Computed example of a mutant assay.
Amino acid sequence: MHGSATPLSASAASAWLLVLLCAVSGAYCLLRARRTDRRARGMAAGEAVMGFGMAAMAVPSGTGPWGPQILLAVCCGASVHALWLLRGGVHHAHHLVGTLAMAYMALSMAAGHAHGRAAGLPVVTGALLLYYAGYVLLGGARLVTAGGGALPVAVGGGAGTGSAGELVRACRLAMGTGMLAMLLTM
């Protein structure tokens, strides 16, 4: 009642929708981590951290003066976890790319906090944009096709056929799209 009568701007509304999308994806991955076997639990827990980290990064009001440093520490820890998962096979490389991209964005946020905006290196940002654009297009094509495509899906506990596998793919697609959107703002 005492607040401003101006409506929520379109950019703030889309940022809050991205926060919601990433948080719901993170929550689903966390629930999946509780229900899966031990081998798949690490991957699902890592994806949950990614979802919640992306939700925190997408908050339109910012994360405060210590937020970028905290996000950087969490993302670096997730990167170490992703390196540990790589011992199980190269199919975990996407998780490593994602955690390193999150660490890169958190570092850019920390460096840009004094300047009022996050700005990274154009070459790194461009390479990540190309990677995630390809990932989103391929993931969308896999989700739309009836058989999920002929390429193997790097997933533990839920990569099978049926609605559970499709929901896992949809969550990954949502998080990939969110990462692409956040990279576009850099």
Rank of each mutant, 00 (worst) to 15 (best):
residue 152 P to D: 01
residue 131 Y to W: 14
residue 124 V to Q: 04
residue 167 L to E: 10
residue 82 A to E: 08
residue 148 G to I: 02
residue 162 G to A: 03
residue 63 T to L: 11
residue 163 S to T: 12
residue 91 H to L: 13
residue 73 A to V: 11
residue 142 R to N: 05
residue 105 M to D: 05
residue 127 A to G: 15
residue 79 S to T: 15
residue 166 E to F: 07
residue 77 G to T: 01
residue 68 P to D: 09
residue 78 A to Q: 04
residue 57 M to G: 06
residue 89 G to R: 00
residue 63 T to V: 15
residue 163 S to F: 03
residue 53 G to I: 00
residue 156 G to F: 05
residue 85 L to A: 01
residue 56 A to W: 02
residue 133 A to F: 06
residue 74 V to H: 00
residue 68 P to I: 12
residue 64 G to Y: 00
residue 62 G to V: 03
residue 61 S to K: 15
residue 133 A to R: 06
residue 48 A to Q: 04
residue 93 A to D: 12
residue 106 A to Y: 01
residue 85 L to K: 00
residue 148 G to R: 08
residue 149 G to E: 11
residue 150 A to Y: 09
residue 70 I to R: 08
residue 117 R to Q: 10
residue 70 I to P: 02
residue 61 S to Q: 09
residue 146 A to P: 03
residue 59 V to A: 14
residue 73 A to P: 03
residue 111 A to T: 15
residue 83 L to Q: 01
residue 95 H to F: 11
residue 82 A to M: 07
residue 55 A to Y: 04
residue 156 G to N: 05
residue 83 L to D: 03
residue 48 A to K: 08
residue 109 M to S: 13
residue 167 L to V: 12
residue 116 G to A: 07
residue 129 L to G: 04
residue 145 T to A: 15
residue 94 H to T: 12
residue 72 L to P: 10
residue 151 L to C: 08
residue 132 Y to S: 15
residue 56 A to I: 00
residue 166 E to S: 15
residue 118 A to W: 08
residue 129 L to V: 08
residue 76 C to S: 11
residue 64 G to W: 04
residue 65 P to D: 10
residue 157 G to D: 11
residue 82 A to D: 02
residue 60 P to V: 05
residue 102 M to Y: 01
residue 98 G to I: 00
residue 94 H to A: 12
residue 56 A to T: 02
residue 88 G to D: 09
residue 106 A to P: 09
residue 106 A to V: 05
residue 136 V to L: 06
residue 76 C to V: 14
residue 94 H to F: 13
residue 155 V to Q: 07
residue 61 S to L: 15
residue 140 G to T: 02
residue 65 P to K: 10
residue 61 S to W: 07
residue 66 W to R: 14
residue 103 A to N: 06
residue 111 A to I: 06
